[in-house]
Amino acid sequence: MNCGKCKTKAVISLPRHNAAFCKSCFTTFVHEQVARAIKSFKMFTPEDRILVAVSGGKDSLALWHILLKLGYRADALYVNLGIGSYSEESHRKVRHYADNVAAAHGAKLIVHVVEQEAGAGIRELATILHRPTCSTCGTIKRYQFNRAAVEQDYNVMATGHNLDDEAARLLGNVLHWQDEYLDKQSPTLPASVEGFAKKVKPLCRLSEREIAAYAVVNRIDYIVEECPMAKGSKMILYKEVLNRLETESPGTKQRFYWGFLEKQTKPEPATESMAEKDQRTLHPCQSCGQPTTAETCSYCKMMAKAKTATPR
């Protein structure tokens, strides 16, 4: 398989875009997708000060990398959750990236260690508070992210949410008709309160596989191991289901999520009820009297054709 652009050997094929790319054309493709998302959802400009939430995983490190490569002013915040070897390893990966790549772009890393402020790691806190670990974690991460942004004057907060994350979240929200959460799925959320930063998801046009491939191709050393608390999560199940659909018909995830965003931005035209529409368009069939939109109904047409056709 060869690159569709420069005809050298391809390293990845993207069925949903009907394309295959070599390393350098793929990197260009990813940068273009992110640039498009930034522009079409009016996320930020080169003057803005961006704070990226990094976890040490592929999405957030790739996001930081891409923003720096595109010339944006982006620093990062890492929250050390105190989850044993997972936190140690992810902290090391983030530190390594910050020192070896980000520093050369003039970008800095801010670190918050949960244990230092709360006196315990996230799992112990969840036990003490009788709350699920992931919701305790979510509250702490959101709080620290907001706090760092406000205290250090960042006006944009960026997260590494990708197409798979958003499509899986949308599926979950739709399955349970959680309408109130649907509004929060936009890739750009304005500051909720004056003085706070707005929230953006610049990777919303890229799949998880594309982002992981970008990290491999660009030698970004990220933590492949998962947070042990993620095991058996509903999100993973939704993603697996969507990936099976995607394999059968490429483009499913993107049509699902982007289609939703489009519906959200365009106001619905005044709708006619189904009964009104039926009464306007249906009338009796010329030959049998059943309702149809044509002169003769499709059943009568079919029968007439069957009778005139020459028998075999």
Partner: peptide, 21 residues
């Protein structure tokens, strides 16, 4: 890519890309 021929002597890593939480 998917159509690449892998030989017996190759060192291969299959890396999952799905993350949850």
């Amino acid at each position: 890519t998917e159509d690449e021929m892998l030989a017996d002597a190759d060192q291969i890593e299959i890396r999952p890309v799905i993350s949850g939480g």
